[in-house]
Each structure stands twice: as structure tokens, then as C-alpha cells.
Simulated scan of single mutants.
Amino acid sequence: MKEHSGYYIVQRQAIPEVLIKVVEAKKLLESGRVRTVNEAVAQVDISRSSFYKYKDDIYEFHDSLSGSTFTLTFQVDDEPGLLSDVLGIIAKSGANILTIHQSIPIDGVASLSISLQVIDEGVSVTDLSSAIGERTGVHKVQISGRGSGVS
């Protein structure tokens, strides 16, 4: 029998109310609308023990995929394998590619825009953009958009 990962996707109506309230309390804390766990649990009407019992085990699905997003823009020479090399650099960093936009090369150069999501807080956007810029054939790498928490 195949071993399970321990994760399930369950519709909201199947989740006990206390777990939904734990998620709401976590949101209150993360948003800064409350300062303490005591304030958060009082506002959503659950006990502190329930909060601490479940806080590390429940989160909204999109939260598991969230992270800082940013966009790198740069130019690349029209060279076979160059885009693949750039994507390899991004893959090694652990960033998730959200979108890729490339213009048709004019005079042997194409403009490229790649939107990325960084889940691992240890990933440095500056280091990633430098690594891409070091590849021969890549020019003018710029971080044109940033989400919160990007280093």
C-alpha cells in the first residue's frame, strides 16, 4: 500500500469550526490587527489551547503557495539554449516561475520579463539577478517589481 504524505485537500464546510477560527486568528496576528494571541483568540472566540494545538497544522491552501513575488527584466542574445540556461539558474535557486514574456528578437536581441515567486526566505533576489546577469548573452538585468520580504 502506498504511503500518504499526510496532507489532504478538504472543502471548507467539512472542516470543524475551531480549525477555521484558528486560521482566522492567525490572519489577525499576521495582519497586525491584534498584537497578541490572547487578543486574537478572544476576537474569534476560541481558547488559547485550541489555537496552540492546531496553529502549525492548519492553513489556507493558497497560503502554502504564497511568497514574495518579483519580476526580472533583461535582454538576451538570440542564441540557442540561452533561455534554457536562464531557467536552469532560476530552478536551482528554488524560485517558482509565474510568467515568462519574450519579445521577438530584433537585431539578434530579445527582451525578456520573468515573474517569479520566492517561497524560501533564504533566496536572495539580488544574488539571483546577478547569477543570471553573469551568463554570457544576458544583458541589463533589472528587478522591476518586488513583493514584500524579498532580499
Rank of each mutant, 00 (worst) to 15 (best):
D127C: 07
G145Y: 07
L98F: 09
D127P: 04
S111G: 09
S47A: 02
I132V: 06
T99L: 08
S49M: 10
L65A: 11
D85V: 15
T126V: 15
S47W: 00
I104D: 10
G94A: 03
A91G: 06
D57Y: 13
A40Y: 01
D78F: 04
F70M: 12
P80L: 06
V118I: 14
I104T: 13
S66E: 14
D45C: 08
I58V: 15
I100Y: 04
D77C: 07
A95F: 04
S49Q: 12
S113V: 01
L112I: 14
R48I: 07
V138N: 00
T136C: 00
G137W: 00
A91F: 10
S103W: 15
F61Q: 13
V44H: 03
L87S: 12
S129M: 08
G147T: 01
L128E: 11
F70Y: 13
F51H: 08
S115E: 11
F51L: 12
G108V: 06
S129R: 11
S115H: 10
S148F: 12
I97N: 06
Y54C: 08
F70I: 00
I97S: 06
V141I: 03
S124I: 05
K92P: 00
Q75A: 07
G137P: 01
A131M: 03
N96A: 11
V150D: 07
I104N: 11
K140S: 11
S124D: 03
G88W: 07
S84L: 08
D45G: 11
L112D: 04
I143W: 12
Q43K: 15
A40V: 02
Q75Y: 15
L98K: 13
F74A: 01
Y59S: 14
I104A: 13
V141W: 01
I97K: 04
L87V: 15
L128C: 11
I132C: 01
Y59F: 14
P105K: 10
F74G: 00
Y52I: 02
I132G: 01
G145F: 10
H139N: 06
D56W: 07
I119Y: 07
S111K: 15
I89R: 08
E60I: 02
V141M: 01
E121Q: 10
L112T: 12
E121S: 12
P80M: 06
T69F: 10
Y52Q: 07
Y59K: 15
T99D: 10
S50H: 06
S47G: 08
L87T: 15
V44D: 02
V86G: 11
T126R: 13
S49E: 12
V123N: 05
Q117G: 06
Q102W: 12
G149M: 02
S113E: 05
T126Q: 14
S124K: 01
L112Y: 08
T136Q: 08
V141N: 03
L128D: 11
I46H: 04
S148H: 12
D85L: 07
S66I: 00
E134D: 14
K53S: 09
I132F: 00
P80V: 07
S50N: 12
L72I: 04
V76K: 04
S148N: 09
K55F: 10
G88L: 02
P105M: 11
V76H: 01
S115T: 15
V141E: 03
L112V: 15
